[in-house]
Design a protein around this nucleic acid. Structure first.
Lengths: 122, 122
DNA sequence: CTATATGCAAAAAGTTTGCATCTCC
DNA sequence: GGAGATGCAAACTTTTTGCATATAG
């Protein structure tokens, strides 16, 4: 029965970009699944808690999810047209954030970085 | 009557951190204003369109606003305890984002960067 | 049989819209 | 009087919760 979790995981894996819970729900239903929207949300919550998927917020406030290839801390370069995503690393940014924080007397510094652009297919 | 817009601007200016529309509404009402929540939202929309205030989303999906001192592109270092905010610049990050985008064939690259930490008062 | 997972419907929370009223010119 | 601003209530969207049912072990 926990196959539902796998359904969600699979739906996420089949695409390259970030998808919203509603997108995933629509896809699964379109594919014939009888899954409920609630279950999609619950699965996404579990998956993101366990670090299996990454979550971020669109400017419209919608949460979007993506299956990540690595557990490491990393950032994303997202195509604003098709949602295609490239996982990127930026040692320079990590250091910069740390330094900026320290400079202003902040401790336990964390950061969020997202890069958007229009990819070569558009 | 457009004094309402100024009320909102003023409510934003009196604090150092990011505030939500609901916070601002509560503050103004507490201060005796008869302003409506709708008007707060409308004022914030106008102010952010004109670039007078900065908007970002919390992890919970709530929009938070802040009066910025400069029109220039910049980022924020936010205290996760008290909300105190420092405007920061990072030429290194700007260049890095551009370079990363170009490297993967992305055009019109933009980015969002937010740094969080615990400030020296905590 | 018992604990967990699921789905539906309803509830929350944040934001936007419809619309009648009010204000300034 | 007319254009734009305002406030209330209702609509909308996304996400969460309550609850009864179904499933696995």
């Amino acid at each position: 029965m926990t196959g539902r979790r796998d359904d969600v995981r699979r739906a996420l894996s089949t695409t390259d970009g970030f998808r919203s819970a509603q997108d995933i729900y629509a896809d699964l239903r379109a594919a014939g699944s009888r899954i409920g929207l609630t279950t999609v949300y619950r699965a996404l919550q579990v998956l993101s808690d366990s670090g299996e998927v990454d979550v971020l917020r669109t400017d419209e406030g919608e949460a979007v999810y993506r299956a990540c290839r690595t557990d490491e801390h990393h950032h994303h370069l997202v195509c604003r047209v098709c949602g295609r995503t490239v996982e990127i690393e930026g040692p320079a940014v990590e250091k910069w954030a740390e330094a900026i924080g320290a400079e202003h007397g902040f401790r336990d510094v964390t950061h969020t970085v997202e890069v958007f652009g229009t990819c070569s297919n558009h």
